[in-house]
Design a protein around this nucleic acid. Sequence first.
RNA 1: GCUCGAGUGGUGGAAUUGGUAGACACGUUGGACUUAAAAUCCAAUGUCCAUUAGGACGUACGGGUUCAAGUCCCGUCUCGAGUACCA
Length: 1148
Amino acid sequence: MKYHFNKIEARWQKYWAENGTFHASNTSEKPKYYVLDMFPYPSGAGLHVGHPLGYIASDVYARYKRLKGFNVLHPQGYDSFGLPAEQYAIQTGQHPAVTTKVNIEGGVDNQNNTIAGYRNQLDKIGFSFDWSREVRTSNPEYYKWTQWIFTELFNSWYNYDSDKAESIDTLISAFAKAGNVQINAACDDTIDPFTAEQWNAFSDKEQQQILLKYRLTYLAETEVNWCPALGTVLANDEIVNGVSERGGHPVVRKKMTQWSMRISAYAERLIQGLNGIDWSESIKETQRNWIGKSVGATVTFPLIPQRGTSDRPEYLTGGNNAKLLLEKAKEMRNNPTTAEAALWESLKGKNLGDKFRRQHPVGDFIPDFVCLSKKLIIEVDGKIHDTQIEQDQARTEELEKLGYKVIRFRNETVLGNLEKVLETISSELESRIVPPSGAREISVFTTRPDTIFGVSFMTLAPELDLVQEITTPEQKAEVDAYIEATAKRSERERMADVKTISGAFTGAYAEHPFTKEPIPIWIGDYVLAGYGTGAVMAVPCGDQRDYDFATHFGIDIPNVFEGVDISEEAFSDKEKTVIANSDFLNGLTYKKAVKLAIYELEKIGAGSGKINYRLRDAVFSRQRYWGEPFPVYYVDGMPQMIDAAHLPIQLPAIEKYLPTETGEPPLGRADVWAWDTVKNEVVSNDLVNGNTIFPLELNTMPGWAGSSWYFFRYMEKAQRDAVFASKEALDYWGNVDLYIGGSEHGTGHLLYSRFWVKFLKDRGHVSVDEPFQKMINQGMILGTSAFVYRADASIISYNDKDSKDFDNWIKKLNTVLISKDKIDSELKKDGKSDFSNNKFTDLKEIWASVEGFDIERIAIKFTPIHVDVSLVNASDELDVEKVKNWREEFKNAEFILEDGVYKVGREVEKMSKSKYNVVNPDQICDQYGADTLRMYEMFLGPLEQAKPWNTAGITGVHNFLKKLWKLYHSSPSAPKGGTSDSEADTFFVTDDAPSKDSLKTLHKTIKKVEEDIENFSFNTSVSTFMIAVNELGAQKCTSREVLESLVILIAPYAPHIAEELWSKLGHTESISEASFPVFDASHLVESSKNYPISFNGKMKFTLELPLDMSKDEIQEVVMAHEKTKMYLDGRTPKKIIIVPGKIVNLVG
RNA sequence: GCUCGAGUGGUGGAAUUGGUAGACACGUUGGACUUAAAAUCCAAUGUCCAUUAGGACGUACGGGUUCAAGUCCCGUCUCGAGUACCA
């Protein structure tokens, strides 16, 4: 019997499908193991040989774990929402759901393309997937729960005190009880403080607006890259030089209201969580960089009032006529009423804890007493006020607009019950919450508070609104010009051009919190508006960018480091730092100085320790059709969630998959896209009445929505409609034990999934904190493109002919393709590509046959052209006849061969249709079988490494499987030890006791293969199998005991042949029910060792010696050996190193 | 620039803790079988010199530690990946 891999593979694939061999159970005595692949996007192009690499690795591991006695969950599904299907829909008008289904299940699409179908292609490779648990993210039964998770996020806020997400209800009741001041939440930074009374007084809409700033998913104005021509938002990497990558259309920055995910709330936990998971260091590092944690401090620098524009002191809050008021106030102060005088005695000198001023101008008024820090005004009214109640009321309103609260007391009250009055003021002071004042100070984030005495200027990002507020009239022109110049430069330009230093002085100064020195404030585009506060305290001696800026603009560079030369560049080393010229920080090292600086800043209220993250909230809206619709409708502009009971909200039918003429997303075309809050169903837009029927959200969710939780869905099989996954299933399977996929998802899918899992855990929906316990990132398989070289004529000199003749001549030329070898060998002669020196004679002949030109004056150019790799054999030889039929342009082409063959050029590139270097796994399966494909992909090299696909070596693996087959068959006809692969062979296994050598080979193999699988070193275990089969073949091993174990070992890699041999061995169960052979070290015990004998570390010969020989005995034998004497050549070794069981080394 | 990873025959790649560098396979060359081809089997195959024995040099480059270095340390170069004016 020959090795008929096609028959064998078809038989077992059918068997596995019919018997549900790989269906996992949610209840089992066995320990659980969950092996997951990143699910594919089912594109119309189908699988190429690169795709299955990770799936094969995970399949080997899953099958291995089954043999090791685990209850293995190894599911597969499709990430079936996405752009290509939508683009295809736009082009062909087919509904994306239809094309997606064809891409998965195979068939013919309406453009008459035959699609193999992902599922069919995957099945051909013999994966042990549990298809009964398949998910497709675009199925309503699935995205129902994606929508549900979205509503859960909406109904949650992040409490930093408990450090987890909580129901929004707890926040609402906290607001109602005590306002928002005590709340330590992840929220927008634009929230004004409010009290419980204020909260309760807010309208419903106001309350909703505030809550939106706390919710874990929220609507916010976001700047996006809008491409009007394409009618869509583009990601940063879809823009090249300010225009769209596709089509080159202009792109503008546009503010749009978008859904965002408050992932920044989880920044710290996303960093901490990395410590407990077994991922590659590089991908963890990618995530850490992306989250970008910096530990440091915020420091506030008070602004110094502008010189020349006003001479009033900084604490003066008066308006335009402050000077006049000031004089009046002085006068009033000198003539206080009795009551005023009495109250002042109690208020002055921070008696109540806060500083009060009397008769101090506020706006256009002079209130009796004012506490600026708490914005509280105390008025003491005499009788006269009874007649001017209205005026007083108006005045109070004006002051309240400025953020002040006014309380009035009657003279009598003050004089009669001063204690009560003070008590009222005190309690008012305590409950007062003052929103941060406007441009009175600049706060910065720094990681180096220890260098605070080295600050010699500040730099603001030009985009900050603050810049306008502080710029002096003298500097305004310069600043405006600079802002305009930077705005013109695209983000990309700014990033690319790091070397040019530019900036402008605002004319404003801030005050150093410790030295009280004025610090000039500059703007410069090296400061980014989006990071930290968009402002930096510049320490030129410690930061190279600040240093360059200071040098460029001639700003001081004070040195705050002991014994460091900063005349050439900044000194940014933290470890060796000793601080100098810094008052109380002098002599301290970095760590101590940072601590003390923060302590002192906090003491004077000028700053505090702070941790900053680079991670931004994630935009969650897409202006697309083919994604999950939001379960959201709008009442009076405020988003409302649709109750879980009414989900899913299904995608509506639309006629065209393009944005509307008014620029709305495609869902704007839907006619039936309104929500009836009474009937709880989607109804026609015509019915919108603003009362019970409201418009639905037009955006859809991004690609990462569905992929952020799909691993939980696989756990649930039975109750998919009732729950996203049942508690029992979630508790049983926990998280993914092994996740295999590409590292390109490092900052996307892998971060968002971790975020959602942590959120679901916080809200009690799942029990795990991390989705993927261990991850392996497989390397990309690259294509090996093949090139033919077209010879193009170009003229060297015209001399006696004109160019017209030449062009006419060229037109008559046939296409000529020259073999790579030919070009190389001819060019070797003198490096010139022309006809001199008797080169390219074949080509010359061909061209000379076209009359009309002096071909001695022709130079030759070689243009490489991609040819389909399937037209080339393993030795780079081109099938010329096939190429002629392949493309019209080659039909009549002439081929110039070298030694009778046409050799192509090769280059390694990414696999892509346009490069004709795609190798389809189906072809390999047909030609060599799935087992060969699986083993070969594993054999190519380390799993995590990128490598080019090269079919050259596949025969080696295929031959191995034939040899394996042969090992279980007797072959009367074959030469000794040879692989006959003849139909005359019969299955032949004996019950004879195995030889010692065979047992040794087997157990050596068991040990190595087990170690290799556990280390994901699949390539070396394939080598091990080859060695084992070679050895057993040489030993003529026919022993059932050995051969049965061997076939189990190989089963994870080559499951089909293993099943076939297993059943031939007499088993009726699938080999996946077998157990992995147990390694027995006793078979490997050696009695002797072939010692390498080295002289000065260089191995010269080997010597077989018993292992139980002592050091002295070894030395004796070695020294007595003839060869030793020869190599020593009469010398006596200075030293003899003997490591028993390892090596002997003679020195001297 | 920073972070991470990697440089080994003609090729893909082995060498798990410092202990015989190049396992296993491809390719190439020679041979067997065959009318022939394919398939299969056997042998050789790091480079250079001698070609019988043997010798010298070899893991990107330059140093170092060690009886012994692909492996450890220092420096340099090249390539790949991620990230980028992150204060």
